[in-house]
Design a protein around this nucleic acid. Structure first.
Length: 157
DNA sequence: GCCAACGTTGGC
DNA sequence: GCCAACGTTGGC
């Protein structure tokens, strides 16, 4: 099992959308960056994923979801009326992938970007690098646990 | 709203 | 293959 973080603008899709119906998978589509896509293709069922809220009031990690369905062709790339339509993608050789995710946990408090930047364990993680625009970020186990520990502290405190 | 940093495109 | 121009991301 591996660990990841995925960025989203909560107006589009937030941890609350997952929590609203925990049994219902949500399709993570619209990723149009090759590096992020390649990471999605590495995902396996059961992988744990931090949900990161960006471009909003409370920037940071809001909770955890898990991979319910591994990568498959993103249907939006074939939908002409979609903002994610890609005229250069073909059914024979689809360019973009989607995964399905289900709810695991919503943190009692969003773990802020400032807090993440202050964690020594995250020093090497692309998320906290200035100018990083990678929207799907791999986490090592120790990186994951460093962030998860903060949410556990919030629960007991 | 600003703007730095980044990825992609396309002319050459 | 280079690189300038462009569009987008995302924190502030």
């Amino acid at each position: 099992m591996r660990y990841w973080l995925m960025k989203t603008e909560p107006d589009e899709c937030s941890i609350d959308d997952f929590a609203a119906d925990p049994a219902k998978p949500i399709r993570w589509d619209g990723v149009r960056n090759y590096q992020a896509r390649n990471f999605m293709r590495e995902m396996e069922v059961g992988d744990q994923v931090f949900i990161y809220h960006s471009s909003c009031q409370q920037i940071g990690v809001a909770g955890v979801v898990e991979v319910q369905q591994a990568a498959y062709p993103d249907p939006a790339q074939f939908a002409e009326q979609s903002a994610y339509f890609d005229s250069k993608s073909t059914r024979e050789n689809p360019r973009w992938s989607a995964v399905d995710l289900t709810f695991v946990t919503k943190f009692s408090k969003v773990i802020s970007l400032a807090t993440l930047k202050a964690l020594p364990e995250l020093k090497a993680n692309p998320l906290v690098k200035k100018g990083s625009r990678l929207s799907v970020v791999p986490f090592t186990e120790s990186e994951w646990q460093a962030v998860n520990n903060i949410s556990n502290l919030a629960k007991s405190g």
